[in-house]
Every structure is written in structure tokens, then in C-alpha cells.
Design a binder for these strands. Structure first.
Lengths: 253, 253
DNA sequence: CGTCTCGTTGAGCTAAGTCAAGGTAGGTGG
DNA sequence: CCACCTACCTTGACTTAGCTCAACGAGACG
């Protein structure tokens, strides 16, 4: 199931590495450490279940390129997606101490590769962060920051699902993705790649595919944005911010 | 705002301490450490905002008795509650390394005392967990476990909001509360105290108060449970499990 | 004996879901 | 090159879960 090929010399992972470094100031030594970790990559084809729910958590990995999502599937087939993972994000990372005991716990959700996914092992980075060595303080800060952001995204998602309308939810999620992809250099000028099917978006936003489609039409007809051939174009980003019901101050976050 | 009285010799906190100890096996020394931390308590009256959103995170605290909730309020007044906190739970705890930098970050949500809330400072416990001393391994495991459970509850909440019907959401939340309170000895025989108003429940479950009320009627009329004078009674717990759409295996979790 | 908070109920409305039928584009095999 | 999948998107018609507005009841409290 985790059919993975191993390669050397990854391509196209520069952005992810740069973004990881942007989480905190890193020393030259630390940067070298990160690059070394990214030397040996694993490629998972689209559709692969990187992590199965309930099975022991795998070692932490840094995404170098591609998209994944964390999800849970109910007994009757209903699915809820917790969030999406893009280049520069980490999966399976917990900065809890106690190396033993903390691992081998059942995963609270599955992780699914949406596109072909290139990752590298982040176990070394995690250990560097936890060894208390002052020389690795930057790595520690970067990983803390990554964990913190993941948690914040989850809280945002709870608000979306609980208290935003379908129209607001969509705008809000697209703005989050735009901001996150911009940080990795994968978005700019209001555009970004969008490999997510409407089914994935619907299962993330707690909507039916049909309704999601109709609400997207509203955005399209209002001239606020378009989604075509795997790309999102925010034609009027400020208007989308308003549509999402965000306060202007919260806009860029 | 954080009008807090300081007392010694807390009363009624035994259950919370016992439950904290149940998160992991603790040595006698560790138990003494926890008891020492619980010597000096802070009492926040109901309605107090223990932690304001956006303000620097306060030092971690262990709840000895009372209820609180973590929430976010939107610009137009809509509110989303992320979850409830009861005796034995921790608030403001992050086990990230880097003592500096990790603190002073803006809180991603507010924490509100629902009832009068008795807490004690958990900074010492946190430090004991992070100092790497083998003598504190139990504390470290207990805190990791607490963080892990909090995250799992949040994921459950996302599923509730995104993919469960109102009827299922209510049953599911009540079952979670029942399980958690049972662990502290505050619930048993299908009964537990319920200081939450219908407004709090509604803002947690992403429903309107009116609709929440009506769905509660359904449960009541079906003879599955009652909520009266601050107490929930699960008359047919197994039937509630079914109503919540949980698989039997997942029932007790 | 007002007033306040909380719970309850009715009436009517709307956001969102379901069911069902096409449409489009890329991919594969004859 | 065409014929045929298959996965995904789109649209229409209809149903329903959940919301809003509004009124009222009951207990708590000064």
C-alpha cells in the first residue's frame, strides 16, 4: 500500500526547503542538516494512503512537493477531511518528549496522497530539535512553529465548519491555501495550482458536492474567482476576503 | 478581568489529581510533585475570561474543579466553541521546546470559565517533563498524553461539525463528556453534572439554540436521556451510542 | 414584585441536501 | 482515427434539516 520508490537528488524541492527555513532563522549548519535530510526522498503515487487511521504513526516526514490530506472515514462512508498538506509542511510530527511510548500510538486520522507526493524523513530533524543542543535551536523553533501552525489551521477549520456559511467557508479555505502556497512560492498574483477535486473540497468543508459546485458558480458569476484546469485565480482577492467574512486585519493570515 | 483569588489547601481537587495521575504511571516522588503544585490554587469566578484571544498565552494551568471552554468570537458576534475543559484537564499547555519564543505567542482562542474554576499553576510540571530527567518520565508521559487527548478531541469535533447531523452531534458530544467525566469520577451510572446552557451547547455544535432545543426534545421524548436541573441522565446509553452513529467499538472512547 | 436568564414552542423561511440526468475531457484499446 | 471508458463537473427539480423571528413560561434573585 505504501508503495514507495526511493530516489536521490530530488528536483523541485527547493521551495519547500526554503519555506521550512523561513519558519525560523537557521544557521548554515542547520540548513545543511535540512538539506541532508532531503537527500533521500520517497515518492508516493496519487491515491496512496500514506498513513492509515488507527495504525501506528509512521516516522515524521517533510513534504517536498505534492498535496496530501488528513481525513477520517465514518462507518457509513461519510468522510471528513481535517486539512490539506502542501510542500514545506510536516506530517506525523509530534514534538512530545518520551521517544518511546509516544510513537506506536494509533494514528487519529489517515493521511492520503492527493497528487504524487515527494517526502523525506524528518526523524533526524525531530531529534535535533529535541536534543537540547543550542546548535539546533533554529530547527527546534522551526518545528515548533510548524506544529503551532498546524494546530491553528485546525482551529480555523472548526470555525469554518461550525459558524461560517457555505459561501464564506469556500472563500476562507481558498484564502488559507493561497496564503500557505504563497509562503512556499507556489502561488502569486492571485493564482495557485489546485489539484483538489470538488469532492475533496466538499468533504473538507462539510458540504455536498452539488452544493459546493453551485456556490462556486456564485463566486464565478460574481467575477470574484475562477477554478479552471487545476488552477485557482482570485480575480478580486479583496472581494473574496470580504465574502469570507474576514476582518481586514485577519486578511493576510 | 482575571480577577483571581489565591488560596491554600484546595478542596475537592482529589479527583482531578487522581485523574491526572491516571494519564501515566507516576512514582511516589512524581505524585508528591503534582500535589505540591496543587497546593496553591487560583479561583476564577464563572464568566471570567481566563485567556483572551490574541493576547500572550498565560502559563499552563491544571484544572482542579469547574468547567471552562475554549472559543473564538467572530466580528459579527457569531461564536464557535472549540471544546470544553473539565477537572484534570490542562489549559495553555504546549510541550514545545524552546522556552523562550514559544511563550508570548498570541493565543489562537480565548478560554472562558463557565463555572467557578479552581486551577493551579502547571509550569513546574511542564518543566519537569521537559528537563529530560528520568525521574520525571512519568510526568512527561502524562503531559504528552494530555496534549494528545486534547488534539484527538479536536479532531472528533471537526468530524461532528462537518459530517454528523444535529441529532448525532448532540449524542456524540454527550458521550464524550460522559466518558471524560467518568475518568475523573464525576460521572457514573449514566449521570453527570451539566453546567452548560443550551446556548453553550449550540455554539459548540454549530447549531442555533432553538434547533438544539428541539433535537434535545427528540432525545427526551424517545426516552434516551434527560437534562434537568444541571444534570444529564443517559437513560439508555447504548441507544445513545447508536443515535450518535458510533460504531460499537468506538463507543467507549 | 419586577427583572433577568434560560428554556420551550409555533410559524414561516432558506440554506443545503438528494436524486437524477447530462456534459466534458483525458485515456485506452480496437 | 474512432469508439468507448471513466472521472469529474454541471444543472434541474424537489425535499428537508436547520435557521429566524417572536412570543411566552419558569425559576432565581434582589
Amino acid at each position: 500500500m505504501i508503495s514507495a520508490l526511493r530516489h536521490l537528488s530530488p528536483r523541485g524541492s527547493e521551495a519547500a526547503l526554503k519555506r521550512f527555513g523561513a519558519l525560523a532563522d537557521l544557521t548554515a549548519t542547520e540548513i545543511a542538516l535540512v538539506r541532508a535530510a532531503a537527500e533521500e526522498v520517497e515518492i508516493a503515487p496519487a491515491g496512496t494512503e500514506i498513513q492509515r487511521e488507527g495504525e501506528p504513526v509512521r516516522r515524521p516526514r517533510l513534504i517536498l512537493s505534492g498535496w496530501a490530506c488528513r481525513q477520517r472515514v465514518l462507518a457509513d462512508g461519510r468522510r471528513q477531511i481535517f486539512g490539506f498538506v502542501v510542500a514545506g509542511d510536516l506530517i506525523g510530527l509530534s514534538l512530545l518528549p518520551s521517544p518511546r511510548g509516544a510513537a506506536d500510538l494509533p494514528a487519529p486520522g489517515a493521511t492520503l496522497a492527493i497528487t504524487s507526493l515527494v517526502t523525506c524523513d524528518a526523524t533526524g530533524l525531530r531529534q535535533a530539535a529535541l536534543d537540547g543542543d543550542q546548535a539546533h535551536a533554529g530547527i527546534a523553533r522551526a518545528l515548533s512553529e510548524a506544529v503551532r501552525r498546524e494546530r491553528d489551521h485546525l482551529l480555523d477549520h472548526v470555525v469554518r465548519l461550525g459558524r461560517l456559511t457555505a459561501y464564506e467557508r469556500i472563500g476562507d479555505l481558498l484564502l488559507e491555501l493561497y496564503a500557505r502556497l504563497s509562503a512556499v512560492g507556489l502561488a502569486g498574483g492571485g493564482e495557485f495550482p489546485m489539484p483538489l477535486t470538488q469532492e475533496l473540497l466538499a468533504d473538507s468543508l462539510g458540504l455536498s458536492v452539488v452544493h459546493l459546485n453551485r456556490v462556486l458558480q456564485q463566486y464565478r458569476r460574481a467575477g470574484l474567482l475562477t477554478i479552471r484546469s487545476g488552477r485557482v485565480t482570485l480575480l478580486k482577492p479583496e472581494a473574496v476576503v470580504v465574502a469570507a467574512g474576514r476582518s481586514p486585519s485577519n486578511a493576510v493570515a
